[in-house]
Design a binder for these strands. Structure first.
Lengths: 187, 187
DNA sequence: ACCTGAACACCGTTCAAGT
DNA sequence: ACCTGAACACCGTTCAAGT
């Protein structure tokens, strides 16, 4: 069988770099070393760093959407759905203190090339859309109000992940989520 | 009168750079150009980039603590105190879409030098301590529970600022805060 | 179609040398 | 005490040249 596509290898290596240290830690020279080519070759596949970043974010969103869509088909209980969603954010944190690829990019968003920013926006939109459905399933709210609550939930979880990561303690994430729940922000 | 201390000038320029684009956008060569010296001279005042970043964070925390302390003395109504706190985050966003200097650094925390990380941690601690007092004033909670709620509020506001900034829309911040309030996360 | 070497303009950092 | 020039090892990017 043929060797794995260089393009796929580059994306795999790049994804880990971003999750570990953010977009600006993406290094063409570093990727080249790991993949076993020269940095100019990486530019052949992804002309600019922005192209690579955008490709990573787009792929990540596609995978996430597929996964969340599956959950929505399999599970009808909104509390369980939310629990699963919370666990996604948690498991990424547990995995070498990484962050959701788009979450960390959202944090860097201001100094991101426009093409990456667009993909990160698409990720946020997809998440809020999914959360809106879950909120509606709970009967807590519907329509515009449900969407607003979904956005608030997303923002709160992003913030919790960020701070827990800064502390290097998953327990901080758990604690914050627990408070979000008891205060009624999320089911 | 003598020219302003070069060290102070460097810090003033550096502060704006971080608030606008984050820690990694801090450039010794760029600062040197603006201040009118060579980059090696900036290193004379702040040996490493970490030293400069830590100094900026420490100063920012000191100023913040002084301001918040003043609020606590002048205002006894916790709802008003919280309103003021929310407005601080909001006004920074309005000011050229900047972010709280430590907020943006908190987002970058994972790839920050340790000495900067410590200062950012001190900023978070100071904010949570202040928020804990406000929560206790409301009578919503006290002791450990109040502290947990304070942490949750801080994280939620950070998240809201982050996302609103990404969107480039202050209204998103307002909307999220409104939801935090109606759901009972904060007074 | 894919890769490379070499160059360009950027970094932070170090250090011997100047005043 | 404060500043500088020059060097070092890093960036992303470009491009003519190779297979």
């Amino acid at each position: 069988m043929a060797a794995i596509d260089k393009k796929q290898e580059i994306m795999a290596v790049g994804k880990l770099m971003v999750q570990a240290h953010g977009y600006n830690a993406l290094s063409f020279r570093e990727i080249a070393k790991v993949v076993g080519v020269k940095s100019a070759s990486v530019h052949y596949h992804f002309p600019t760093k922005g192209d690579l970043g955008a490709a990573l974010a787009r792929r990540y969103t596609e995978d996430g959407v597929a996964y969340l869509g599956g959950l929505l088909e399999d599970i009808k209980n909104p509390a369980v759905l939310m629990q699963r969603y919370i666990e996604i954010f948690r498991s990424v944190l547990e995995n070498e203190n990484r962050m959701c690829l788009c979450g960390i990019m959202a944090a860097e968003r201001a100094h991101l090339p426009i093409e990456v920013r667009v993909e990160v926006g698409a990720f946020i939109d997809a998440n809020v859309a999914w959360l809106t459905k879950v909120v509606e399933l709970t009967g807590m709210a519907s329509g515009k109000v449900a969407e607003q609550q979904a956005l608030a939930i997303f923002g709160a979880l992003e913030g919790a992940q960020l701070i827990a990561r800064g502390r290097g303690a998953v327990e901080v994430y758990d604690q914050m989520v627990a408070t979000y729940r008891t205060t009624g922000l999320m089911p």
